[in-house]
């Protein structure tokens, strides 16, 4: 390929990437500008800039409570899924590889059933009786666990298949490690990457979840998205500030996690 051709190709490649970035970032940029505009209605450009919407938001106790609720529920659901899914994956792949096919069907269920439908079922099941949990954060933690399951299972399975689980376990055991030691010292550190990807993906998804949160719990344990929904009639600047804050939070979290996870060896 000649230099000129390489140049055109590179211009083409660049423009595709930039176009994609613009499409993705433009709405965010608009929201951001709106969130720092003092007022922006009948003019082309905002009439002035201010941080008062952010100040107002971050000093609103209702927002802070909702933020805390969201955080707690997401972390709770993710802790539950790590505690349950990691051993499950290990057992499935180490002892019962045939179960993997069954699991692959099971993890599709949260996608196959729309949240609106399954939340009606959950309302019936947990609305009354011995396990009346509707309106409490517990039902959301349990429900979010099932939503996180596919992400966790797939990402970690890919990771498990990339390492040679059986040979690694055999080698570790012959060197004197117990099954637990082998799992913790040899297998788990090698799943770190897949686990982190799964956690980040699930977290950002769950943090923005609205349907389950609104139907199952609503204002009784208000999460961020439910709060945002309830604020839809207040100032658009205020809700824009909320969206940007929420976005920045997930962004920073992702960045920190990626930074901490950076492989020393690479």
């Amino acid at each position: 390929m000649s230099r000129a051709e390489a140049g055109t190709a590179s211009v083409y490649h660049r423009s595709v990437v930039y176009l994609l970035f613009i499409i993705l970032l433009l709405p965010l940029l608009g929201t951001f500008v709106y969130s720092i505009a003092s007022s922006w209605s009948a003019t082309v450009l905002p009439s002035g800039f201010t941080f008062k919407w952010y100040l107002q938001l971050w000093s609103d106790p209702r927002f802070l409570t909702a933020f805390g609720h969201s955080l707690l529920i997401c972390v709770g659901a993710l802790v539950l899924s790590v505690v349950l899914i990691l051993p499950l994956l290990f057992v499935v792949h180490y002892h019962f590889p045939k179960l993997d096919a069954l699991m692959n069907i099971l993890i599709l269920l949260p996608f196959a059933v729309p949240p609106v439908v399954s939340s009606v079922g959950l309302l019936q099941l947990y609305g009354s009786g011995p396990m009346a949990m509707v309106g409490t954060p517990w039902i959301l933690i349990g429900c979010y666990f099932t939503v996180a399951l596919p992400f966790m299972y797939r990402a970690i399975t890919n990771n498990l298949q990339a390492i040679n689980l059986h040979d690694l376990m055999d080698a570790a055991q012959l060197l004197g490690a117990s099954t637990w030691q082998a799992a913790f010292l040899v297998v788990l550190p090698n799943l770190r990457k897949g686990l982190l990807v799964a956690l980040l993906l699930s977290f950002s998804f769950l943090f923005g979840e609205f349907v389950f949160a609104n139907i199952l719990v609503g204002t009784r344990y208000e999460t961020l998205q439910v709060f945002l929904n309830n604020m839809r009639n207040s100032s658009g600047h205020f809700t824009s500030a909320l969206v940007i804050s929420y976005f920045l939070f997930v962004l920073v979290l992702t960045w920190v996690a990626t930074f901490l996870n950076k492989d020393k060896s690479q």
Binding site: D167, D170, A177
Partner: peptide, 27 residues
């Protein structure tokens, strides 16, 4: 297997990817 005092080398090497050469050998 832990108690047998037998060493084994595998076709797939089975080195621990998260450890350096030194840490692998010292395991």
């Amino acid at each position: 297997p832990q108690k047998r005092g037998i060493g084994m080398v595998f076709q797939s090497y089975a080195l621990f990817p998260n450890m350096t050469v030194e840490q692998n050998v010292a395991f």
